[in-house]
């Protein structure tokens, strides 16, 4: 066999094997019921968890979010649009996943803003300016505080509230629940207790659509 033919044949064979293996690995078995609900469902929503949308909504999306996580910031507008499209049927419950070291102090600021009725504006302002206060994945609380000063919060009160041990306990509870539920990356979504079959906005929309179509 000519060397060039040998090489081209081997190259084609290797890529073919890679493509077949990828297809086998990514092929999801067709399951009309979708993924089963997660174990420890009681840990999904706590009394203290901030919620957005209709309280008796048919479908509840639980999102574990790390305010310093880039993908969380990218996903947030899309999730919000999903809620805006189904205001009567969708509810978002937010859980914190303080995975970036030091981000718990920024979460404390968000929870302190909640006591001034400004939790969602605070979260959105921080997600929008994430690159400013999280250079190189290191949350900078001072910079985050400067961002929040721009949305008209009582900064003296914010500083005092953020130091409240009750807020630290809330964050610790969320972190413990994340561990219990096997959440190890963010954002992680549960739709009526069911985890995403695989990560992606499309998968989230599909799962939400399935749950909306139920009953």
């Amino acid at each position: 066999m000519k060397p060039k033919t040998l090489f081209a044949g081997a190259l084609a064979l290797l890529f073919f094997a890679f493509a077949v293996a990828t297809l086998i690995q990514t092929a999801t078995p067709k399951d009309p019921e979708g993924p089963p609900p997660v174990a420890h469902a009681e840990a999904l929503v706590r009394m203290h968890s901030p919620a957005f949308g209709h309280p008796n909504a048919k479908v509840t999306i639980v999102e574990f979010i790390d305010p310093a996580c880039g993908t969380c910031a990218t996903f947030y507008p899309a999730v919000k649009r999903m809620l805006a499209d189904e205001p009567q049927n969708l509810r978002l419950v937010l859980r914190y996943a303080p995975f970036h070291p030091g981000v718990d102090q920024v979460i404390a600021l968000i929870e302190a803003a909640r006591r001034q009725g400004q939790m969602w504006p605070a979260l959105e302002a921080l997600l929008e300016t994430q690159e400013r206060w999280t250079p190189n994945h290191r949350p900078n609380v001072e910079e985050a505080r400067r961002v929040l000063a721009g949305i008209g919060l009582d900064m003296e009160r914010l500083r005092a509230d953020a130091a409240d041990p009750a807020i630290a306990a809330l964050i610790a509870q969320d972190a413990a629940d994340a561990r219990l539920l096997g959440v190890d990356k963010t954002p992680e979504f549960f739709v009526n207790g069911r985890p995403l079959p695989s990560f992606g906005l499309k998968q989230l929309a599909t799962l939400v659509g399935e749950e909306l179509a139920r009953r």
Binding site: L6, L14, F18
Partner: peptide, 26 residues
Amino acid sequence: AWLLLFAAWIVAATATLSALFLGEVV
């Protein structure tokens, strides 16, 4: 010598694709 080098390339290409498969696909 050419065949030995060719065999080495097969090993390197297989290892490369396998590493990419385990990391990016799995």
